[in-house]
Simulated scan of single mutants.
Amino acid sequence: MSYSAIATVKRELLVRYLEAWAPAALHRARRVIYAHGYADADGGAAVEAAMRVLAEQSDLVRGRELTMVATGDDLGAIAPRLAAIQAESGAGAGLAVHTISGGTDGRLPVGLKAIGAARVPVLGFLDASSSSVAPATVSALTAGKPADVLLVLPPGASSDSFRTGWPLFSQVELAVSDEPGELLVFGTTAGKSLEGFKEALWSVDEFAGVRYRDPGDPDRHLIDISLTPHPGPLRREILAFLHRVGSASVTELRTFALTETVYRAADATRVLHTLIDAGTVTREPSHGRLGGDVVITL
């Protein structure tokens, strides 16, 4: 497995999502918190990339508070590098960085409470692909309002124990072969955040054969990273969903794609057009725009 390529994909996805999340959160609230767990897992490459994104918000943090809390086993070598990026940013006192060594499970929940993470926008990134992470560590992020988490689990891991407190939950495998890949999980308390994550997911550049796999696809099809992803797995999942429920509105099927698959709502609309044209499903009414209230039946 190309671990370096997978690490690059994870890092770019974090950067793309953070670039959209940080300015939106700063416009919405006076205090914003970004939490980075296992910051020493990759030698600090991911947390430094995140720090650069936060430092670019220097114009927005004036009069506001943007805080990073980074935890890991030993951040002694990483803390000075983060401080240097902070010093060069010109963000002044509005950008605060707290590095806490001693382990993420033991330190992150305490650190979030100490800096007052309750009821302010919070985004957490926890790459536990080489570590074990406690469900309580992930759920500690739900103190935020709204709250988002990007969580990476080892190949073959289950995300079931991490769903508590996250009303919206999506996951995708990062794979380079037929073997199980690392599991990337996104949890959020806001629908717009899930849409933003999906846009970032498919806008990442393809690296060294890394592809996505939808954990809900029984055929375990590998999907190339693309702005217009291959619709095969989504087609199968929509048809399986219709087999279970009989019929569903376009809105319900778009929501199903967004929340239960790796795809976006817009991808579901694209698949529905092809299914209707092929005669695989019917629509009611039979003519006109494919609006949200149109009912789709096998």
Results as ranks from 00 to 15, higher is better:
Phe241Tyr: 15
Phe241Arg: 14
Phe241Ser: 12
Leu242Asp: 05
His243Thr: 14
His243Gln: 15
His243Leu: 11
Val245His: 11
Val245Asn: 11
Val245Gly: 04
Gly246Pro: 04
Gly246Leu: 05
Ser247Glu: 14
Ala248Gln: 01
Ser249Ala: 10
Ser249Cys: 08
Ser249Pro: 05
Ser249Ile: 08
Ser249Leu: 06
Val250Ala: 04
Thr251Val: 11
Thr251Phe: 10
Glu252Gly: 07
Glu252Met: 10
Glu252Ala: 15
Leu253Gln: 03
Leu253Gly: 00
Leu253Ser: 04
Leu253Glu: 00
Thr255Ser: 12
Thr255Tyr: 06
Phe256Lys: 02
Phe256Cys: 00
Phe256Tyr: 10
Phe256Glu: 00
Ala257Ser: 08
Ala257Lys: 02
Leu258Val: 10
Leu258Glu: 14
Leu258Trp: 04
Leu258Gln: 11
Thr259Gly: 01
Glu260Trp: 10
Glu260His: 14
Arg264Gln: 09
Ala265Pro: 02
Asp267Met: 00
Ala268Trp: 00
Ala268Ser: 04
Ala268Lys: 00
Ala268Met: 01
Arg270Gly: 07
Arg270His: 14
Arg270Ser: 13
Val271Asn: 04
Val271Ser: 03
Val271Trp: 05
Val271Phe: 02
Leu272Met: 08
His273Arg: 14
His273Gly: 08
His273Tyr: 10
Thr274Leu: 14
Thr274Met: 12
Thr274Gln: 15
Leu275Gly: 04
Ile276Asn: 03
Asp277Arg: 13
Ala278Pro: 07
Gly279Met: 03
Gly279Arg: 04
Gly279Asn: 06
Gly279Val: 06
Thr280Ile: 12
Val281Tyr: 01
Thr282Ala: 13
Thr282Cys: 09
Arg283Val: 04
Glu284Phe: 13
Pro285Trp: 03
Pro285Ala: 04
Pro285Val: 02
Ser286Gln: 13
Ser286Thr: 13
Ser286Ile: 09
His287Lys: 14
His287Gly: 05
His287Trp: 12
His287Phe: 13
Gly288Ala: 08
Arg289Phe: 13
Arg289Leu: 15
Arg289Gln: 15
Leu290Met: 01
Leu290Ile: 02
Leu290Pro: 03
Leu290Gly: 00
Gly291Pro: 06
Gly291Tyr: 09
Asp293Asn: 13
Asp293Phe: 09
Val294Lys: 05
Val295Gly: 03
Val295His: 01
Ile296Cys: 06
Thr297Trp: 05
Leu298Trp: 09
